[in-house]
Simulated scan of single mutants.
Amino acid sequence: MRELLVIGIGPGHPDQITVQAVRALNRVDVFFFIDKGESKAGLNGARDEILHRHVTTPRYRIVNIPEPARDRSRSLTQGRYRTAVRDWREARAEFIATAIATELGEDEVGAFLVWGDPSVYDSTLGILDGILAQNALAFEYSVIPGVTSVQALAAAHRIPLNRVGEPIHITPARRIADGLPEGLDSTVVMLDPEFTAADLDDPTLTVFWGAYLSTADEAVIAGPLPDVADAIVEARTRLRDQHGWIMDTYLLRRDPAVQ
């Protein structure tokens, strides 16, 4: 039976994958890459470097899968956002299922290399489960965890994510448009197409921001949100223009003593 490996490869540095992941890479016959276009070619370039550095059995081949279009407008209501994500996942699932069926032999091992860890805001596992549920294509799959951008962010700023006895909240940016949830004073924000926190009028917040974490292009900014928000917006614009894409995340921390 076909076998698939979903391998977390960390936030970008080739050395931030686990020994377990390296062993998995060397079992693979076919690597499936999602092709996000020329503007984001650097993403697959990082995957190529991981293979070059860690794979010692050069018998593999690479299959590129086109990325379907998706509406990422910040103005989408929660209902329309879920519909847009559902439609995008269904389209992506069709491409992935076709690639597996046509490019992976019955006794071969395929792999998807997932940024960070497959369990944190990534669609691969849900899509594979959806394909299996249709009973049209049979395969087994397993998951190899990876370092997340959340961990890399904390390491870059040399901070713990939590304060003593307090929870950590991880959320997509659209959930903080009206501020941090009550009682959650340490919030990691992901999937932000802009810098949503710039619109928050909250002098109690400190931000720890990072882009291209753990790579040679890493950029970090930290400070009271009202003081550094403009600098982060400027940095995001400049870096996106420079690289053609940006991957960033940030921690917002509320200081109840600041009023």
Rank of each mutant, 00 (worst) to 15 (best):
A111C: 04
P58L: 11
T18E: 09
E67M: 08
P58R: 13
S73F: 00
R86L: 11
T83L: 06
T77C: 03
H52P: 00
E67P: 01
P68G: 06
D71M: 10
W88N: 15
G126V: 02
V55K: 15
G110Y: 13
R86H: 15
G126Y: 01
S123V: 04
L25S: 06
R82S: 08
Y81E: 05
Y60L: 02
R47D: 11
L51Q: 03
G45L: 04
L128F: 03
F31A: 09
V109N: 09
R59P: 01
S75K: 12
Q134N: 13
G116Y: 01
V109F: 04
P118Y: 08
T56N: 15
S75Y: 03
D48A: 08
N64G: 06
W115E: 09
E108M: 01
D35K: 07
V22S: 11
F31D: 02
A111R: 02
N64W: 00
K40M: 11
L104D: 13
T98H: 14
P66Q: 08
G130V: 03
E49T: 15
I65N: 09
D117F: 00
A93S: 14
F32N: 14
A101Q: 12
F95G: 13
D87L: 07
L25Q: 06
G105S: 03
G126R: 05
P58W: 05
V85S: 12
R80G: 02
V109Y: 03
